[in-house]
Amino acid sequence: MIEILKNNYRKAKSGYQKFQLYYAVNWTKTIYFNFKKFPFSTAKKLPVFFYGNVKFASIAGKIEIEGKIKKGMIGFGQPYELNTLHKGIAEINILGKIVFKGHVQFGKDYFIYIGENGYCEFGHMSSLGSYAKLICIESIVLGNYARFGSECQIIDTNFHPMMNTITEEKFKMTAPIVIGNYNYVGSRVSMMQNTKTPDYCTVASNSLCNTDYISFGSNILIGGIPAKFIKDSISRDWEGEKDSLDAYLIV
């Protein structure tokens, strides 16, 4: 009897959370975006939800969803974190190509810029927390369950041409960023050009990543400015948390 009551409570709580999510959807922007960017057969399923205010600076680029299409599988401004208020400063500027390979979550008040020649890919259950900034001029790829905390930034360019003042050699302004599967990234982390992380990598808060960390192997902790190898044989308990994570985040 107690177990039945517990199961009923969990179902009721889950149903209430889903109701809150649907109530928070910005249906005007959601309907406009889906029918503007997808064929009717896809658009009618409303795979992309927008929560709160958002400015579409441009959505002229190409947006693709790989896999089975489901309602609300991609949530921009999805309220899954502790903070409950939107500041209303979210902005999207998609000129290049963005690919979603499953369910993806963006927290509140994000900034997304994909340049004309940029390619950005989000793996299944990857996420960017509130106040995240992503600027993709060349290439940014996030693996499955690559989850970023709040106030992170992922930027594959230094914006301005730099040079060696002695040899006058000019350095390349952009370089790809590749984030492995099952990465757990703390808050206020900066992922800059040339960053590559292995699977099952944990990144400490307030770190700056700017190089290839794959040679350290999987299940590692990195951190610092710039980020260095700290410890191996450490990982978030993905298997223990995966079911509850999916149940809470998937609309």
Rank of each mutant, 00 (worst) to 15 (best):
K70F: 12
E241I: 03
S190C: 09
V104R: 00
I69C: 00
D212Y: 07
Y200D: 02
S205V: 09
F76G: 00
G149T: 09
G217C: 07
M162A: 13
D246V: 15
M1D: 12
F49L: 05
P47H: 01
L142D: 00
K13P: 09
G129F: 04
Q78C: 15
K13F: 13
K133W: 10
M173V: 15
M191Q: 08
N83F: 12
S127V: 02
I230K: 11
D237G: 05
S207I: 05
H160E: 05
I234K: 09
F35G: 07
C152V: 02
E116Q: 11
K108L: 09
S127I: 02
K29Q: 10
S218E: 15
T195E: 04
Y184K: 10
G107V: 02
T197S: 08
V99I: 15
D243I: 14
S215E: 13
P79M: 05
G96Q: 00
Q105P: 08
T202G: 07
G102C: 05
G240A: 07
S130P: 05
I65F: 01
A43T: 07
A132V: 08
G96L: 00
Y9P: 07
L95R: 15
S14K: 15
N219L: 04
D212G: 06
P198L: 02
C136D: 00
G15E: 09
K13L: 11
M73A: 04
N117V: 07
G180K: 02
V203F: 00
Y200L: 07
G102D: 05
D232Y: 10
D156V: 04
A175Q: 03
I74Y: 03
K228M: 11
L5K: 14
I166D: 13
V185A: 09
I135E: 12
D232L: 11
F19S: 15
A227V: 06
V251H: 11
I4R: 15
A24D: 11
K108C: 02
Y182P: 00
M191F: 13
F49Y: 13
F40P: 07
I140G: 00
E3G: 08
Y9L: 12
F76Y: 04
N219Y: 08
G118N: 02
M1A: 12
M73C: 04
T28M: 13
N164D: 15
V54G: 01
D156C: 08
V251I: 14
Y145G: 08
